[in-house]
Simulated scan of single mutants.
Amino acid sequence: MPKTHLSPLTLRSYSMFKILSAEFIGTFWLVLGGTGSAVFAAAYPTVGIGFLGVALAFGLTVVTMAYAIGHISGCHLNPAITVGLWVGGRFEASKVIPYIVAQVLGAILASSVVYLVASGKAGYSLADGLAANGYGEHSPGGYDLLSGFVIEAVLTGMFLMVVLGATHKLATPAMAGLAIGLCLTLIHLISIPITNTSVNPARSTGPAIIMGDWALSQLWLFWLAPIVGAVIGSLIYRWLCPNEETV
């Protein structure tokens, strides 16, 4: 198996504890960097980084972690990616649940840190948000449930195709992290106004657990749509590339 970002196991020489720790740390960084930029810097104080900056922040977290931990855990950082890689024949079924648990725990810790820092500002309230994902009245642009489901499923499906293609044995390994990070940036540029962009159930779970209320009640969508999209995208890629390497 070639040693490429997100390939199934470059991880052979690492203990499972270290592998899961890498996923925990990587997902922590993704959620801290992405949602932290949205909470702290998007509109600070009158001129902030805006949607473009937040989109770039999410992409940069993936790029940086790809080169930091890609050789340890594969740098999934996302339950939908983990499921999609399994469906795509790149990941072992026995590791899917442990990976997802590590990712969700990392995301919850990151959201806790974002909340701890944000609450140090006078007048801050959870009602101001933690960059949670939502639809309907909680969509930044007022998009409904159907719009949210469609965009999350379609974009996650395309994300999986990029991941599987960029990490293919015939691709250029050194460029995989950059391609995947730029894809995530593009995804955010498209969908921040619609759902605040998930395509990652762990990223959605962290803020929802801290906020509770509507964010928790709408969380189901940000598990269902990305995983459905990931499965479809992976199946399409396997059809396009029937000679794909498998674990």
Rank of each mutant, 00 (worst) to 15 (best):
I232A: 14
V54K: 10
A107P: 02
V101C: 09
T64M: 14
L6Y: 00
L155H: 08
V101S: 02
W29E: 02
I210V: 15
A110R: 01
L145H: 08
L6F: 05
T172K: 14
A41R: 01
F58D: 07
P140I: 07
L216R: 04
A110W: 03
G181N: 06
I108H: 02
P45A: 13
F58Q: 09
R203G: 08
S147M: 04
M211V: 15
L219D: 13
L85N: 13
L52I: 15
I100M: 15
T205E: 08
M211H: 10
S21A: 15
M211Y: 12
Y99G: 09
A43T: 08
A107Y: 03
P98H: 02
L11S: 14
S191E: 10
Y99D: 05
A107K: 01
A107E: 03
S94I: 12
W214A: 13
Y99I: 05
L189F: 12
A22F: 11
H76P: 00
T82C: 07
G142S: 07
F149M: 14
V247I: 11
L224A: 15
P140A: 09
F17M: 12
G141T: 06
G84T: 07
R90A: 11
L219T: 03
P79A: 09
Y99M: 11
A66F: 10
A66G: 15
L30N: 05
E137W: 02
R203P: 04
N200C: 05
A57C: 04
T205D: 03
E244M: 04
G123H: 11
T35M: 05
P79L: 06
V39M: 02
Y237M: 11
I108R: 05
I97T: 10
L155Y: 05
T4G: 07
A93C: 01
A215C: 08
E245H: 08
C183Y: 08
T46I: 11
V117G: 01
L56A: 15
C75V: 15
A22I: 05
G84A: 09
A43C: 00
K121R: 14
G48N: 01
P173F: 02
P207G: 05
A66N: 12
F222I: 09
A131E: 03
I151D: 08
T64V: 15
H138G: 00
A127P: 00
F51C: 00
M1G: 12
V54F: 02
G59A: 13
L9Y: 12
G74S: 07
Y99T: 11
T172L: 09
P201A: 06
G88W: 03
L30Q: 09
P201Q: 09
P173Q: 03
I100L: 10
F40T: 00
V154C: 10
A132H: 13
S94E: 11
F222Y: 15
W29L: 15
G177H: 12
G157S: 04
I69C: 03
K18Y: 10
A80C: 02
S119Q: 12
I194F: 04
G136W: 10
V247S: 07
R203S: 02
L160T: 09
Q218T: 14
Y143R: 04
D128H: 13
L130S: 13
V101L: 15
T167G: 14
N196T: 09
L126E: 06
G206E: 01
